[in-house]
């Protein structure tokens, strides 16, 4: 109540002092930053594409043998699911991606720690990994088939390599790029080497690690698509490769949709974990 009265007296008292004409001279600056982000705006783009696809198919503008209608793809998908082949293929692909990813993740982290925290490790590892990076990993497929046979091992090995490289690079860069001011602080506070690594270096390197992790997750799916289309006897890629031989575009689209959904899901999962682990960062950006 009291606040209300003070406000009124304030405005009436201030009015004669600040004429309206003067107030109007204050020009509001042009806003250069984009406006506030709406919650689900990211989904608008894909929804528009889907709508266009539906409309064009219904209007008969698309050749069904080149691009089948969305409902055809759905029907094929549920038919393959009921027949049991689709769940089998998805499971095989998921297993490959997950195993390769797990090995690549572990390898990337261990190598980055060894190379980022010790000079000996850096001398031995960093150059070697960069050499490995310079060789296109998919170019290793023929050699790996000769070494490991055409079974599961070589596929998992290739995926692991595709995954470990971005994780290593980003984690190593973050570990060795630790702010020298924080190193000095750790010295002043008499931290032991172990405390320094656990309380300063590793938390400081986590943002870089997560960049690598997201690239690695995407990489595992990319590697999988290629591997399963070249040398596979099962899995989503194999299913699509077979469909190509029989001209079943709807089956190919089912495969693409599944790949897309899993890629999106795994990336979102990493982002949710990232936001939780790096919750201290939100206070800066908000």
């Amino acid at each position: 109540m009291t606040t209300h009265t003070t406000t009124t007296t304030h405005t009436t008292a201030a009015a004669p002092l600040a004429p309206v004409e003067e107030a109007r001279q204050v020009r509001r600056r042009r806003r250069l930053a984009p406006g506030r982000r709406l919650p689900t705006t990211r989904l608008i783009g894909p929804a528009v594409v889907l709508a266009l696809w539906v409309v064009a198919s219904a209007a008969g503008l698309l050749d069904p043998s080149a691009i089948p209608a969305p409902w055809t793809v759905l029907e094929t998908g549920s038919r393959l699911w009921d027949a049991g082949t689709l769940p089998d293929d998805i499971l095989t692909s998921l297993q490959r991606a997950a195993t390769g990813f797990a090995i690549g993740l572990t390898g990337g982290i261990l190598l980055a720690l060894a190379s980022g925290l010790t000079r000996t490790g850096e001398a031995l590892i960093d150059g070697t990994v960069n050499l490995n990076r310079a060789i296109p990993t998919l170019g290793l497929i023929p050699l790996f088939i000769l070494w490991l046979g055409i079974g599961e091992t070589f596929k998992i090995a290739i995926i692991a390599i595709v995954v470990y490289i971005p994780i290593y690079l980003n984690t190593h860069a973050a570990l060795s790029g630790i702010d020298s001011r924080f190193v000095e602080l750790a010295e002043v506070q008499d931290l032991s080497k172990v405390q320094f690594i656990r309380q300063v270096v590793i938390p400081g390197a986590l943002p870089g690690f997560f960049v690598g992790l997201r690239l690695g997750v995407t990489g595992s799916w990319l590697g999988l698509v290629v591997l399963e289309q070249i040398n596979a006897t099962s899995g989503l890629g194999y299913m699509m490769f077979q469909a190509q031989n029989y001209g079943q575009t709807d089956v190919i689209l089912v495969g693409l949709v599944v790949y897309g959904v899993f890629g999106l899901l795994s990336d979102s999962a990493v982002r949710i974990i990232e936001r939780r682990v790096l919750s201290w960062r939100r206070t800066l950006s908000s």
Binding site: L185, D190, W280, L284
Partner: peptide, 25 residues
């Protein structure tokens, strides 16, 4: 026992204030 205060506060951004005060303790 020597302590140093720097020109910048040099708080570790990933530790809460109390955890920063307790760093190394």
């Amino acid at each position: 026992r020597v302590s140093v205060v720097f020109q910048d506060s040099r708080l570790l951004p990933w530790r809460r204030v109390l955890a920063n005060v307790l760093l190394g303790l």
